[in-house]
Design a protein around this nucleic acid. Structure first.
Lengths: 149, 149
DNA sequence: CTCCACCTTCCCACCATGGGAAGGTCAAGC
DNA sequence: GCTTGACCTTCCCATGGTGGGAAGGTGGAG
């Protein structure tokens, strides 16, 4: 991100800078989240106009796009910080990237399995339920632990 | 939950009451969460000893167990409030229960599908990655959007 | 009486993504 | 030049569910 080159916004635009909503549009990351990511240090502090407006270069937008894609794949902010570090390190080993991605994949697998377990139980209960005006209900019986009696 | 019958804890115990850690142990809901559920109104206010300790009956523990089971199946607190209402309504229609459970099941399906999409993409990327000391990495290329160029 | 494990309330934290208030800025249109 | 509405800024709070921990009180075994 530009360090501290102060411009009027129109000057900045002429030099190829974007303001925050343009960066948000171009990257898919909301303006709110761009500010948040700057605050938590995920991205460097943006340059500013004399009015205090944030200004961004193509490269900055590219970083935001990286974050967007990473978020869409479910990586946590912490993991994304690690990925950004690797991306920007020309001496990185792809093994480190692979390890991080594989761990994330394992986490996803665990969560999927958990949700599928819930789904299976619910499918069974919903199937057993008449779903009419009567009060007897196997779903509630299960929740109340009657099935265990 | 008992309304306002004040006892010394030992007296309460003799009458069949449990204190909060006993209720937590018996229900699987932590003491912290029992207090929280009372605070948000999911469960009625507990009776107290003269010292201010919460005391619970078997029926109260049963409600907590119901909540535990519902949480384990991934129902939200709001949904659980609804389920509790239905459970305690002898005039309920099982159709209402079934509807609530089916909606929750659909939500689970959507979330599972989402996570599986992520997993699929990651599986492909991890597979393509050499995972050695070299810097070139298809995972980072994807995140950076190179695959889209 | 001592002491340790419990109880209480209260405040904060986590994670990621917002909403909205209050006040300032920009630029098109008149 | 002025107006106005869409933008910008910072700040504070919220969401959903589950905690951690501080400060101070209680219970009961030894």
């Amino acid at each position: 991100m530009p360090q501290a080159k102060y411009f009027e916004l129109s000057d900045a635009r002429r030099e190829g800078f974007f303001n925050i909503s343009e960066a948000a549009e171009a990257s898919g990351v909301s303006a709110k989240m761009i500010r948040h990511y700057e605050e938590i240090g995920l991205v460097p502090k943006a340059g500013r106009t004399v009015a205090g407006y944030r200004i961004y270069r193509d490269a900055d937008v590219h970083v935001l796009r990286f974050i967007r894609r990473s978020r869409d794949l479910g990586f946590t902010m912490k993991e994304i910080a690690g990925l950004l570090g690797l991306w920007q390190d020309k001496r990185r080993a792809s093994a480190d990237v692979k390890r991080l991605a594989a761990k994330h994949m394992a986490d996803l697998d665990a969560r999927i399995a958990e949700l599928q377990g819930m789904r299976r139980t619910l499918e069974h209960l919903v199937h057993c339920c008449h779903g009419d005006g009567r009060p007897d209900c196997p779903i509630l019986d299960d929740l109340a632990g009657a099935a265990r009696a």
